[in-house]
């Protein structure tokens, strides 16, 4: 079985892994060593992580708060909308779905410019964290809608609802009793995607943030520009610790939602 083709493929795969993994290891190492240039021999320390916590814990908490608020909003806006789109697969639905998906395609920077020019002058809004929230919802909403929609598209929603209706359930009741429970795998996968993306969102946030409202990735950019390498690395490490389990959970949930469909 050891063909040359296979060997080349293995080498390419390993090199790609190395390219992606090595800087991650470096950053973990740098965040935990006393002096990165002297290497591990200088000893391990949590000093830099502590420093990050002192400097940036506000940013971290703001990001968590934003992610949870973003999740709440995308659930409220996205789940009923996905249901409506699934029930009404007409031309108008396609257009609306396509339009709400624009933030997947248009760079965050352009969206941020658009938001800033329309709402930037409303000081109360501009300086409130809800301004950043709008950006995050804009960016993550399509993921929620699509995730729920893809699960709903695989079940015979119409028949299930007719079944519930024949037993006396009204539309709102059917939504709660039948639609939401059967869409749960999609909702879960969508929710994890929304939280993961919101915590890592930079392009929109950088334009929308104010000096008093720095999210985790904005703080990261800040530390890359102005802090010593060990602090920047320690902060990146904190970010990894938050984002990697979320990413794994998200991939698990998406795979599960997809399995359910088969």
């Amino acid at each position: 079985m050891k063909t040359p083709t296979k060997l080349i493929a293995l080498i390419v795969t390993l090199l790609a892994c190395a390219f992606l993994l090595i800087p991650i290891i470096q950053s973990v190492q740098a965040g935990l060593t006393v002096n990165y240039f002297r290497g591990l021999s200088s000893g391990l320390t949590l000093k830099w992580v502590g420093e990050v916590w002192e400097l940036y814990s506000g940013s971290i908490f703001l990001s968590i708060r934003l992610a949870l608020a973003c999740l709440a909003v995308t659930l409220i806006l996205g789940v009923p909308a996905a249901y409506a789109l699934a029930r009404n697969p007409g031309r108008a639905s396609r257009v609306l779905e396509e339009f709400t998906s624009l933030p997947l395609a248009i760079p965050g920077l352009a969206l941020a410019l658009a938001l800033l020019q329309l709402y930037g002058t409303y000081q109360g809004f501009r300086t409130n964290w809800s301004f950043i929230l709008v950006g995050h919802v804009l960016y993550t909403l399509p993921f929620m809608v699509r995730s729920v929609l893809s699960v709903l598209a695989t079940i015979d929603l119409r028949s299930l609802e007719e079944g519930a209706a024949s037993l006396g359930a009204r539309p709102a009741r059917r939504f709660v009793d039948i639609v939401v429970p059967n869409a749960l795998p999609g909702i879960l996968a969508g929710a994890l995607t929304v939280v993961t993306l919101s915590i890592g969102e930079f392009n929109l946030t950088w334009m929308l943030h104010t000096p008093y409202l720095k999210t985790l990735p904005v703080g990261l950019a800040d530390s890359y520009a102005s802090m010593r390498l060990e602090v920047a690395s320690a902060y990146t490490l904190v970010f990894f610790v938050m984002i990697v389990p979320l990413l794994m959970a998200m991939q698990w949930a998406s795979a599960r939602a997809q399995r359910n469909m088969q």
């Binding site: 015979d156 028949s159 299930l160 007719e162 079944g163 519930a164 209706a165 024949s166 037993l167 006396g168 359930a169 009204r170 009793d177 039948i178 429970p181 059967n182």
Partner: peptide, 16 residues
């Protein structure tokens, strides 16, 4: 339909 008090068995059964 939900007010008619009918019982229906669907071709696909439509079980929840």
């Amino acid at each position: 339909v939900e007010q008619r008090r009918i019982g229906m068995v669907f071709q696909s059964y439509a079980l929840f």
